[in-house]
């Protein structure tokens, strides 16, 4: 495990050093790429709580990513037109303050995860995969056909939202916010995995009968994990929308759900820092292969196939060389 800790530290240091170097030589685009890595890794860290510890293969996490995005879009668009969201029974106005937006995004995503989780967790295995995928698609079509917030065209925000004392329009400062949240989420999921809750959840993945026999409910453990997982992915969605200053139904699409899982797998299943490695590899490939060929998805597909069939540990597993403790 020591070697894995070194790799993890190198990963985070790399994610910090590359944008700092880009800042020093004035390459804002590279900083934006690093910010994307941090945000997408955060989304995958969220999914990894359900998938890595709980064994819940959710193919619908785009739902929470999109809800986070739309929470930001709706609040900020009302704030920029000074048009309250609702006036009765109480006055609710839009806001451009990031921490407030984050809280709304997290709560909205958690609520959605509670409803979707409560329905989907009545089943397991393949049913669960298909149902989460279907609920994600439901929100996608809802976002397309609901005209109030842009429908298919999405919603643009003129200026990035504010964070107290920082200038969020400066790429490196916005990166710092995203990186800090990623580090916080990683710390949180490490604590969670080692907590009694995390251990029980892990046990519910391996032998649900025994968990039940000691008086715990696997359903409740999984639902709690699913809600936490959706909430973190929702936070990432709010940041992603802020990075692009744009939200659209694409955030809800099934490809987004697939990509979030792909980050975890490329990095290594069951590895805490797998999402960071996977998101970094994905964005790097997208950037360099995308320049070489318009059809870079073919190479991504072949790489993914090779990882699934032959190198199941992903990047971290290959480098650390040891099987993950619970595999």
């Amino acid at each position: 495990m020591k070697r894995e800790m070194l790799i993890n530290a190198a990963l985070m240091a790399g994610l910090l050093v590359v944008p700092l170097w880009a800042w020093a030589v004035d390459e804002p685009f590279t900083i934006t790429l690093a910010t994307r890595v941090a945000i997408l890794a955060l989304a995958a860290v969220g999914l990894n709580i359900a998938l890595g510890i709980g064994g819940l293969v959710s193919l619908g996490h785009a739902a929470f990513f999109g809800i986070g995005g739309y929470a930001m879009g709706i609040l900020a668009s009302h704030a920029q037109t000074y048009d309250p969201i609702m006036q009765w029974p109480l006055l609710v106005e839009g806001t451009k303050v990031m921490p407030v937006i984050w809280i709304v995004a997290v709560l909205a995503a958690a609520l959605a995860a509670l409803v979707i989780g409560a329905l989907s967790l009545r089943t397991s295995g393949v049913y669960f995969i298909m149902i989460t995928l279907a609920f994600g698609q439901m929100l996608y079509f809802f976002a397309i056909s609901w005209p109030a917030y842009g429908g298919e065209d999405g919603l643009s925000i003129y200026v990035r939202n504010d964070f107290p004392l920082l200038n969020t329009l400066d790429p490196i400062q916005f990166f710092a916010i995203c990186f800090a949240l990623l580090a916080l989420a990683l710390w949180f999921s490490a604590r969670l995995a080692a907590s009694p809750f995390g251990l029980a959840l892990n046990a519910a993945r391996q032998t649900p009968q025994r968990v039940e026999a000691v008086g715990l409910s696997p359903f409740r453990l999984r639902l709690a994990a699913f809600v936490l997982s959706g909430a973190i992915t929702g936070l990432a969605g709010a940041l992603f929308a802020d990075l692009n200053r744009f939200v659209s139904p694409v955030m809800f699409s099934w490809q987004t759900s697939g990509e979030i899982i792909v980050f975890i797998i490329l990095g290594g299943v069951g590895r805490l820092y797998g999402p960071v490695a996977g998101a970094a590899l994905f964005i790097t490939l997208e950037h360099f292969l995308g320049e070489v060929s318009d059809y870079w998805h073919i190479f991504l597909g072949l790489l993914l196939l090779a990882v699934v069939l032959f190198a199941r540990g992903g990047v971290i597993g290959t480098l650390a060389g040891r099987k993950v403790a619970h595999d």
Binding site: L59, I129, I265, V269, G301, L304, L305
Partner: peptide, 15 residues
């Protein structure tokens, strides 16, 4: 596992 099946067939979609 189903997870591997999902990923490998997702890769096939991309290809």
């Amino acid at each position: 596992e189903h997870l591997d099946q999902v990923l490998a067939t997702f890769a096939l979609i991309l290809i």
